[in-house]
């Protein structure tokens, strides 16, 4: 196939502008850096922020993995992979450990990331205070003054309404004791993985035109109250139907015919690699035992 585009779709100037914003984001952990979000061949809100980061960073020797809510084969992930390989020719993988660049929608992989890896997260709403304060002018000031009562107020409201902190995803975090950040809609289960992560985590919001970052080995604390500590989702007594893994993030599925509820690893490549190793040894080895 003859590639009619520049390497990685964008012209070099665009890539440089995005990388410049990214560098600033890394220098100020958790701070939302505005950038000139480019027109993309996919619609805004479908991962253009993450994709622009990926395209600006990718090199010929990179190995790419794309996940959409834990799955490597869903439409969004496949299309993004096609676009990137079509314009760069880089290798794509499903095994997390082999990838150098991982673009993800709403999950951090189960396998701990390494120093040479970069995780790119797609962000729909980068502003953690948006529901509390609709005006960007005002939220910018609130960030500047480190005035985050709004973020706590939203959690307080959840406790008043539901008796606990019920944020299903996107539970706000304090980065490097300075900026409150929306970790993108990852489940609370993944929040602790950001804390002192070995890998660089970049977050891109294409529609909202913001880039922000958690550099490696940076303190990331999920917001909580003294008497209502932060809790991740728990899957006590549950394990994956396929690979038997426990202590990982599980999807709840309902069997269409029998109506029976069962659970399965949300991270498909993790599940697959376990299945492969299990079938090789002919035995079941639960992960956390």
């Amino acid at each position: 196939m003859k590639i009619a585009y520049n390497f990685a779709f964008f012209d070099e100037g665009s890539k440089r502008e995005i990388r410049r914003a990214t560098l600033k984001a890394i220098a100020i952990p958790g701070y939302q850096v505005p950038f000139a979000s480019r027109e993309m061949p996919i619609a805004r809100g479908w991962g253009t922020g993450g994709l622009q980061l990926t395209l600006s960073l990718i090199g010929k020797n990179d190995v790419l993995k794309v996940i959409d809510q834990g799955a490597d084969e869903s439409v969004n992930a496949v299309n993004i992979k096609k676009l990137v390989t079509g314009t760069t020719g880089v290798k794509t993988v499903e095994v997390t450990a082999e990838a150098t660049l991982i673009q993800s929608r709403h999950r951090i992989p189960e396998i701990p990331l390494k120093e040479h890896q970069i995780l790119v997260l797609q962000v729909p709403l980068p502003e953690p205070l948006r529901y509390y304060e609709p005006s960007e002018f005002v939220t910018k000031r609130l960030h500047a003054e480190k005035e985050y009562s709004g973020a706590w107020l939203m959690l307080f409201e959840q406790i008043m309404k539901y008796g606990n902190m019920s944020s299903g995803a996107d539970h706000p975090v304090m980065v490097h004791d300075r900026y409150v950040m929306a970790p993108s809609p990852i489940p609370r289960f993944d929040n602790p993985k950001m804390n002192y992560s070995n890998a660089l985590i970049l977050l891109g919001a294409g529609r909202e035109k913001k880039v922000y970052a958690v550099p490696p080995y940076t303190k990331v604390v999920s917001l909580a109250f003294d008497d209502y500590p932060f809790e991740a989702e728990r899957f006590d007594g549950m394990s994956c139907r396929l690979c038997g893994a426990a202590g990982v993030f599980l999807d709840e599925l309902i069997h269409e015919e029998t109506g029976e509820t069962y659970h399965q690893c949300n991270d498909t490549s993790f599940c697959l690699s376990r299945l492969n190793s299990v079938s090789a040894k002919y035995q079941e080895v639960p992960l956390n035992e």
Binding site: E147, S149, W152, L153, F156, I159, K161, D226
Partner: peptide, 19 residues
């Protein structure tokens, strides 16, 4: 926001973190 949340807002702003 709830009425009690409105009151909590001022308390949170003044440093309280105890629900």
């Amino acid at each position: 926001f709830s009425s009690i949340g409105n009151i909590a807002e001022k308390l949170i702003a003044a440093g309280s973190r105890n629900v």
